[in-house]
Design a protein around this nucleic acid. Structure first.
Length: 562
RNA sequence: UGGGGCGUAGCCAAGCGGAAAGGCACAGGGUUUUGGUCCCUGCAUUCGGGGGUUCGAAUCCUCCCGCCCCAGCCA
């Protein structure tokens, strides 16, 4: 019988590859690459690209390289290289021995440039940056040729060599491709191939003082590595003619550049520049703040690699610019954790309950299921005693319609324990605030079943007061309070920051089995959500949990309509 | 009034001339010791708009409208 693996949604890039394979292009090879610039941390938008490139390679028995596009030493740092490697690995992808750096190809790129000069297709230009801009023309007006455009080849060769050896200061010369200053596509108006930058590179040190520009370098990197499909984002569509031009002039292996729309997620921002700004200005604590859409932030928050890979598959790949609803991401992590995460009881906002007819000194252990979705995860024993904590939200003195939880005179079940009924509400005489509930329990309902078959409409989670362990729990909400914070042209995106994106609860009471929970471990706090032990600030003596995502809450919806 | 792209449901997204896939969200129902999960059901008579070609158009032609990207010695 045919397996019913969920069919992957087709996308145009996969279709192109299938067609190429049918036509026998590239000797039947599929070879992609993920080419980050090490100038920032990876975010979930990068994850889309990583999953696409590595996923396509895996699907067609091909290869995918990890390559650092490190052609601009003034923006790039070793630290970013480190974090990118960690993140791609964490996501679950393996580039085997194919970790490459554009900077490893500098020598070869230089030689290719010499070839172009010899063909009369490149020249050294002495125009300043401002002049180059002026000469380029505008969107509607053609450019003007540089006075240095027709320099003799020998002179170009000499000058280019001297640029390389460090004879000239930054900005004094460039190497430019000789194409067409009247081209409709501005990228083709004699683009700069090399600029002089007396800056130390994180890998090549001061070996070079000329550095290749993206357009010149990228196609060469792809070509050298034998890439077949060079997948990039939409804004490079205008650069494709140039990508093609360089490779055609050189007559070298010519990968196909294919562009797709980058990911945007609602209620957050995705550009490295803005993310960096949020960090620098202290709107978040760091790149790995659990509210950040960075991979390190999502990891710390408690997102799993599986959930992010699944998300990447679900959102698809197309050329249409779009904003994916963050509810889709939340769905993916719930779906994963529902199957994986052990259940546990934790009270976030405690309200004390005294079981008035439960013997003073008595205590007992009750059996609880670790994961109803997976019986292999077994059971555990949880302590029960006369004084407990329940959630403040689970009691209402004047319950609205459809409120099934605890209320004066109303009976509910304590999960895995007993039916209880509220008999008295104790308040602070000064403030009127409810400080304690007195309840009676039915000893016949041990384990949660009533021998007389009577039903109860709600089951509450609880923790034995004497046995509870204390923890801090951090609740996260969306970082911005509008779906698309950058779409408003008149208002800075930061004016839409959600001031309540972090809520710290410091008096949470958890089941004792959590006492030695390890950083990174994920649990479902029943009826609350999924939580992850913070990997940075949690210690054995002071447990800190991050809420990854709440459980779906249909009561909240009903309540909202009341 | 330059060039390059893109418009299919609230959000993603298939489809590429022969009766509008799928997912998220949403709504209703069933199961349930998590108001969770799971299971059903519903959710585009129509594909940005107008013309045209065709027996037949989301798919082809044409005009129009809207949105995005491009004038770094960034990537």
């Amino acid at each position: 019988m045919a397996s019913e693996k969920p069919q992957r949604t087709p996308n145009f890039i996969r279709n192109i590859i299938i067609k190429d394979l049918e036509q026998g292009k590239n000797e039947g090879r599929v070879h992609t690459r993920f080419p980050p610039e090490p100038n920032g941390y990876l975010h979930i938008g990068h994850a889309k690209s990583i999953c696409l490139n590595f996923g396509l390679a895996a699907e067609f028995s091909g290869l995918c390289n990890l390559r650092f596009d490190d052609t601009n030493p003034v923006k790039e740092e070793e630290e970013y290289v480190r974090s990118i490697i960690e993140d791609v690995k964490w996501l679950g992808f393996d580039w085997e021995d194919r970790l490459y750096y554009a900077s490893d190809y500098f020598k070869q790129m230089y030689e290719y440039a010499v070839q172009l000069i010899k063909k009369g297709k490149a020249y050294v230009c002495d125009l300043t940056g401002d002049q180059i801009r002026e000469y380029r023309g505008t969107l509607t007006k053609p450019g003007v040729e540089s006075p240095y455009r027709n320099r003799p080849i020998d002179e170009n060769l000499d000058l280019f060599e001297r640029m390389r050896t460090g004879e000239f200061p930054d900005g004094s010369h460039t190497l430019r491709a000789k194409i067409d200053m009247a081209h409709k596509n501005l990228n083709m108006r004699d683009p700069v191939m090399y600029r002089i930058l007396h800056a130390a590179h994180h890998r090549t040190g001061d070996q070079w003082c000329i550095y290749p520009m993206y357009d010149w370098a990228h196609g060469l990197e792809d070509s050298i590595e034998g890439i077949t499909h060079s997948i990039c984002t939409l804004e490079f569509e205008d650069h494709r003619p140039l990508y093609d031009w360089f490779l055609d002039q050189l007559g070298v292996h010519h990968p196909q550049q294919i562009e797709f729309a980058r990911l945007n997620l609602s209620y957050t921002v995705m550009s490295k520049r803005r993310l960096l700004e949020l960090v620098k200005e202290g709107h978040v604590s760091s790149w790995d703040d659990p509210r950040m859409p960075t991979l390190s932030g999502l990891r710390r928050r408690g997102y799993t690699p599986e959930s992010i890979r699944n998300f990447s598959e679900l959102i698809g790949v197309a050329k249409r610019e779009s904003v994916v609803d963050i509810a889709m991401l939340e769905y993916c992590i719930r779906e994963d954790l529902n199957k994986q995460a052990p259940r546990v009881m934790g009270v976030l906002k405690p309200l004390k309950v005294v079981i008035v007819n439960y013997p003073q000194a008595e205590a007992e252990y009750l059996e609880a299921i670790n994961n109803p979705e997976d019986s292999k995860m077994g059971t555990r024993q949880i302590p029960f005693s006369r004084e407990l904590y329940i959630e403040q939200d689970d009691f209402k003195e004047n319950p609205p319609k459809k409120f099934y939880r605890l209320a004066p005179g109303q009976e509910v079940r304590l999960r895995y324990a007993y039916f209880i009924k509220c008999v008295d509400v104790i308040k602070d005489p000064q403030t009127g605030e409810i400080t304690e509930l007195h309840c009676s329990y039915d000893p016949e309902t041990r384990g949660g079943h009533a021998p007389d078959g009577r039903k109860v409409k709600a089951t509450l989670h609880w923790v034995s007061a004497a046995d509870a362990i204390d923890a801090e729990v951090r609740l996260y909400d969306r970082l911005f309070n509008v779906p698309d914070p950058t779409s408003d042209k008149d208002q800075n995106y930061k004016t839409f920051l959600n001031p309540n994106s972090l809520e710290i609860l410091s008096n949470c009471k958890l089941e004792p089995c959590l006492a030695d929970a390890k950083p990174g471990e994920k649990y479902q706090f029943e009826r609350n959500g999924y939580f992850c032990v913070d990997s940075v600030e949690s210690t054995t003596g002071r447990l800190v949990f991050n809420r990854i995502v709440s459980l779906k809450d249909s009561w909240a919806k009903i309540e909202k309509r009341l």
